[in-house]
Each structure stands twice: as C-alpha cells, then as structure tokens.
C-alpha cells in the first residue's frame, strides 16, 4: 500500500508539471479524483485492512485526497481561470451610431459660446430682398463694394420699390436689419444659417455655405468690448492660449471695421513652413466692426443714442481649420465615411 501511494504521489507531481491548459487540468482531475480514480480504488481496499491499519490508511488516504484537491486548485488558480481562453486580438464590435453633421456641430458650438455671454439666437430667412441684403446695410447699388457679395436673384415678383428684387441672402448680415426693426435695444443676437453666392465649386468655394452673424446694441457698447467678446470666442472655440489680432479693413456696414486674425494654433507662430498659416503666424477668421450709424438709422434706431458692434464669420472655414478638413466639398457630399467621423 505504501508503495502504491508513493507511486501515485510521484505520478501526480509529473502530471501537474505537464498540465498547462484548462483541458489538461480537467483530465488530471478526472484521473485522480474521478469516480474511477486510483485513489478510490485505494479507499476500496481500506475496509479489508486490519483494525490499526484501517484507521491509519483511512486517515492517510484522506490527507492524500485533500493534498491532490488543493494541488489541482492551486494549478487552476495559476492558470487564471477555468473558463475558455479567448483571442483578445479579435476585432472589436462596430457600433452603428448616429452622427451630427460637422457644420451643425460647429455652428451650434459658435452660437453657444455667445449664448453664454447673454446673446440670443435668432434665425433670419434665406429668401431676402435687396433692401435687407444690401441697402439697409449701407451697401449702395452699383458700388464696387457689392462685388464682394455676388448674389443669386429669384423670379419672385417684386412688391415695392424700396425693398427691391428678391434674392438668396449672400450673407447673414440682413438678420441685423430684420431684428433691429422688431426689437428695440439693448439687444445682443447671434444669427446662424445658410448663405448663397454664385461661386464656382472648388476645394475652397461653394455656392452654398454657412455663416454666423452676431451683433449687440446698447447705449454704451464700444470697440474694446467687441474685441473682448471675440477674444473670449476664439479662446473657447480654438484653444485657451489663442491670441487675436484686429487688422483695419473696410466693410460698408461697420466703422471702424476690422478683419480678425488668430494666432496659428498649430505652429504658435513659430514655424516658417507651417502648413496652416504659411509661416505668417496668423490666420484670418472673421470680419467685424462698430455698426455704421447709417445702418442703425436705416433700421429705425437712433444712432445718437445707441451704439453697436457686429461680426460675421463662416462656419465651414473655422470647421476646416479646427478639424483639419482640406476640401469644402466634403461637407455636401455626405459620404458616410466622412459623416461618421464626427
């Protein structure tokens, strides 16, 4: 009996050494602890032993059984789990998710920065007339300044001479005239939406694109506040360390007027061959200024009492800058591979 037990122990040690998988251990368990296991055959011999021997072997065999059990358990723990091991390098699940168009994302983002400062969103209409799109904004008929605002005209019969022909708005600025005619200052409004210009489509032009117009009017609005509001915007929209530069420019509806450049957020103005700013260190992003007194007057607001500022920016351009999109046509092709990235 002694010899048999010793042999069993030696065999177990050897088998434990070889067992490396859950399957091996299971086989081990069946071999040593299963119904037909050797140890059970040994137990079967105990009743036929003499009195003293009976007690001794009963106890020894039980100890041995516990030893085998714990050795196997130990081995299982060492392997991690008794469950099937899986190939973790397999591809992950793909989700069929919805997505907001990046133009909507950016437009909402722009508006919400200004909403936090107390601006209200008011959308204008896309079908406009010459008065609101041009004349009210101090853009005279037959003036070279209109060249910058080439426009699609519509075949809707004209109603009155002052409003002129119907057209698709070429910028969101007519919202200024629309709002000022209805709501009296103080006011602060942002107005997002689609605009249209007859530009041949290429990587950076589209006959339809999006803009956000913003303006504020009160008795004490000033040029420095315009700068503060826009600095706040570029820092929240682009990066907290973005710098801003006002460069004098001309817009018929503002005076003084400025074009606004932001410091290049890629090279921080330090790289000579920056792909974004071409080494200038600055990127032009929007136009702004103090609302021209003539515009206030055209909208029935007394320019002696009130002052205002206004700014206008594209949506596609900041989106392209911020997300590194290199072709404006991508926005309107609606390729699923493009849409699902945002």
């Amino acid at each position: 009996m002694d010899a048999e037990v010793r042999r069993l122990e030696e065999e177990l040690q050897a088998d434990l050494q070889k067992a490396n998988t859950a399957e091996d251990i299971e086989a081990l368990r069946v071999k040593y602890l299963g119904r037909k296991a050797v140890i059970n055959q040994l137990f079967a011999k105990v009743p036929s032993l003499s009195g003293e021997e009976k007690g001794k072997w009963g106890k020894n065999l039980n100890l041995l059984k516990n030893k085998i059990t714990s050795a196997i358990e130990e081995k299982i723990k060492g392997l991690g789990s008794a469950e099937d091991k899986i190939d973790l390098s397999f591809p992950a699940k793909k989700f069929d998710k919805g997505s907001t168009h990046i133009v909507s994302v950016v437009s909402q983002e722009i508006c919400s920065v200004f909403e936090k400062l107390g601006f209200t969103v008011v959308e204008g209409t896309e079908i406009e007339n010459e008065w609101h799109n041009f004349s009210a904004l101090n853009i005279p008929l037959d003036h070279p300044s209109r060249d910058a605002f080439d426009t699609f005209y519509l075949d809707i019969p004209q109603k009155n001479a002052q409003n002129g022909k119907f057209l698709l708005r070429s910028h969101t600025s007519p919202s200024q005239a629309r709002v000022m005619n209805i709501i009296k200052p103080p006011l602060a409004v942002v107005s997002p939406g689609r605009v249209y210009r007859p530009d041949q489509v290429d990587a950076s032009h589209s006959f339809m694109f999006h803009q956000v117009e913003g303006f504020a009017i009160s008795e004490d609005i000033n040029f420095a506040q315009l700068k503060g509001v826009l600095l706040n915007f570029v820092r929240l929209f682009f990066a907290p360390d973005t710098d801003l530069r006002f460069r004098p420019h001309f817009f018929p509806f503002t005076e003084p007027s400025a074009e606004v450049d932001i410091s290049c957020f890629i090279c921080k103005g330090k790289k000579e061959k920056c792909s974004l700013c071409k080494g200038k260190g600055w990127i032009e992003i929007l136009g702004c200024g103090m609302i021209h007194p003539k515009v206030l007057k055209n909208c029935n607001i007394d320019p002696k009492k009130y002052r205002g500022f206004a700014f206008g920016m594209g949506v596609e351009r900041p989106a392209m800058l911020k997300y590194g999109i290199n072709d404006i046509r991508l926005f309107y092709e609606n390729d699923v591979k493009f849409l699902e990235q945002f």
Partner: peptide
C-alpha cells in the same frame, strides 16, 4: 488696434428664446 484692451460688455436683457 492692438493698443485697444479687450473688455466684456454687460449684455442687459436677454430676448425671448
């Protein structure tokens, strides 16, 4: 223009949503 220090205006009255 660079000598103009930015300020933040007090927007007086929010309009209806």
């Amino acid at each position: 223009y660079d000598k103009i220090e930015p300020q933040i205006p007090q927007i007086a009255r929010p309009l209806a949503k």
